[in-house]
Amino acid sequence: MKTYFTQILTISGKDIRLEIRTRQMAVSVIVIIVALLVVANLAIPNTTTTTTVYSTTATVVWLCMLIASFLVVMRSFIIEHDQIGFQGLTMCPVPRDAIYLGKVISNLVFLLAIESVLFPLSSILFNIPLLTLTIVAITVPATLGIAGAGTLFAAMSVNTKAREILLPVLFFPAVIPIILAAIDATQRALQGTTGSALWQDIGVLAVLSIAITTTSAILFTFAMDE
């Protein structure tokens, strides 16, 4: 069991180390996010009620995360594919699901890092209280589900002819339930909803994310069965 976790952490550690050394992805994703927020400011007029601002901003923030997550998961497999690292990974004497979980963890770390920039930035730019513990409780399960589904689809589409076109076609519809749930929970949290109604939302989000990640882990072993 200990070896299994070491294998997972070694794989995720490799990706995280690579990103810390090159910083290729972080810079480009942050530039894209800022550009998206600048465009989205037109959708959030100053004159409307707070409720409208909250619901629009929650949608904008999660749309940014959807696009950022596409770039992150695609990148995590393109570097492997282009440098023939993936072949090495599949030849390693580690279970396929350890490779999957290692990749999920590194993608989750990257996405949480992006969120730690996106959320404070959106709070400042749109004047909304996005930096609360409730928002963190929504973000962590939602991001896990996005990383879980994204890792599986990126591993598959990188092995096809049109990987950049195919990934969003498979990935975006797959994470729609999670994104819808996350937007709704964020809207409620911003509007000050507390107690069981909000926790029920977060609970559903957590169940959905764990279900998608577990199913993806099982399916990943079939996807890499070559």
């Binding site: 598959m156 589409s157 049109a162 195919l166 279900a211 998608i212 199913t215 996807a223 070559e226």
Partner: peptide, 25 residues
């Protein structure tokens, strides 16, 4: 789309089965 973009027949069947299962759920 994943069927038409996968060149290897075995991989095509496996990938589309995975998309089919996750898509239905």
């Amino acid at each position: 789309l994943i069927r038409s973009y996968s060149t290897d027949p075995d991989r095509r069947a496996r990938f589309s089965a995975i998309v089919g299962i996750l898509g239905s759920v």
